[in-house]
Structure formats: structure tokens, C-alpha cells
Design a protein around this nucleic acid. Sequence first.
DNA 1: AATCAACATAGTAAATCAATATGTTAATGG
DNA 2: CCATTAACATATTGATTTACTATGTTGATT
Lengths: 139, 139
Amino acid sequence: MISTRGRYALRVMIDIAENSGGHYIKLDEIAKRQNISEKYLESILVILTRGGLLNGLRGKGGGYMLTKSPSDYTVRSIIELTEGSLATVACLKPGAVPCERQSDCRTIEMWRGLDDVIAKYLDGITLYDLMEKPIDYSI
Amino acid sequence: MISTRGRYALRVMIDIAENSGGHYIKLDEIAKRQNISEKYLESILVILTRGGLLNGLRGKGGGYMLTKSPSDYTVRSIIELTEGSLATVACLKPGAVPCERQSDCRTIEMWRGLDDVIAKYLDGITLYDLMEKPIDYSI
DNA sequence: AATCAACATAGTAAATCAATATGTTAATGG
DNA sequence: CCATTAACATATTGATTTACTATGTTGATT
């Protein structure tokens, strides 16, 4: 289960991607548009900024900005930063103490396969893919 | 994240599948083999029994037994029964109140796709696939 | 210097997890 | 029929996480 933290983070990233015209976007604007409590949103933006996905600037004219172009953010990178490892079981989390019954564990390979399927799916989608795009009238 | 409840449930189902020679298997045997506290295991077996995945019999000679053949249990059915809906986000849980911003939600289809990928993967693996199988010397 | 807005730290109510404790019901065997 | 066996039932607990809220600090503009 992805908690609101991760889900909000993704929505906020899309919001910034869609609304930044090269300038910084204020937290309270995002909070209003996305209907998220300012203070809770702040805690999420801290994670995104510390993780290098956003640039924060204080003072007048300050706010948040993407550090790279939307197509360079995979959904996985955003969710993993805010939610932590996406491993579906504890023994596959990075740094987990290898369980002593791992040698004849019937399930670990199955779980590993699930993790792979999830990672591959979320790696295949970028912020750009989630942005509202103008209708293409060409042809 | 799948909690120990779901993980243990799967291990226990495999244990019963592998060790039942047509007779009932006692809880304390399973607990010992799987190294799970008897009382905690009991709460898991209750779920599996109530859900119809196992048959419980009391008294001497009692224990637990599969209700169908291993290849008829998908991993998904076991995990979903013990963990509840596997929906990755709250708004995709069955019975969730549809969120009012759903009409122009940029992410819901992406989440739905993730849920589909997970469901398909877990539907494609059965208890039989996870059982220890005798080496095949044929050819 | 005043204002603005991100940064920092601490705390809290509610929920969930992983158990444990105690007792009850229903089969079986002597 | 009665003792044993083993599943069923209910309640409680400590630890952790989630989703916030409150208060204060730092650093950029104008």
C-alpha cells in the first residue's frame, strides 16, 4: 500500500511540472490546488528537496522548482524516495538481515519476481507521461 | 508491503500442502516447522479456515487440511484473504468513496495499471508452483 | 528593516502489527 | 462416560507508523 505521503508527492510533482513556467512555485499555492494541508505538504516537500528532486528557494519570489525535466523523473524514483524501499516483503528490503531459512525458502524467488514486476512498471512511467498534454490536432 | 500475516499464511499453506498425506496436520507441528509462535499462527489459521482455504477439525486426530488441490490456490487468493485488498492506493480499494478530484486525476490510471500488473503476477502462481518437487529423472 | 516563504524540530491522536493470555467447544479413545 | 486432545473465541498489550498540527528559525527580496 502506498500511503498518502507517496501519493501526494507524486501529485505535487505533477502539479509543479504543469504549473511552473520557469519560476518558483509557492507551497501554499500547491496546497490550495491539491487540497493538502500546508504543514503536511511541507513535510513532503522537505523529502523531495533533500532528495534532490526539487529545488527550494526562500524569501519573496521563492518556492519550489523541478531540478530536471519531467521526462527524467520516473514514478519509481518519486515513490521510492518518499515511501522508502518498495520491497514487498521485509527480507527483500535493502539492509535486511538475511533470514536463516533462506536456503530452502519456497517463496523468496516469487517475491523477488513481484518486486521486479513492480519496479519495471514504475520505471517505465515518467512525470511527463502523467502531465496534462495539449490535444494533438495534427494529421 | 506484505506483512508477516500474509507471508506466514503462504508459508503455512505450502507447509500443509507438502506435509499432508491425506490426514489432518496439527497446528503445533506447523508452528514448530515454520518457527512461528503457536498463538499467532492460530490467528492466521482462523482466517484461512473461515475463508474456506483450509478445513479445520477439532479433537484427537484433528488439525488442518487443504480444501482443494495445490494447483487450485493462486498466491493472490491466499495473500488477498489474509492481507485484505491488494490495492496499492486507498482510492482503488473496493468500497472506497470515489474521490471528488477523480475526474481530472492524472494518476489513477497509472495506479490501476500497477494493481493489474500485481494481480496478474500473483494470479499466475499457484501453491503447486511453490512446493518442493521431486527431481524429474525422465527423458 | 520589513516582509516573505522555505526550513527545522517536536508533539499528538488514531490505526495497525505482532504478538500473548485465558478460556470454550467439539471430536476421539480408553 | 470421561479424560484428553486440539481447534475455536475473545480480550489485551507494547511497539511502530501515519497523518497531521504547533511553534519557532533562517535566509532572500523589496
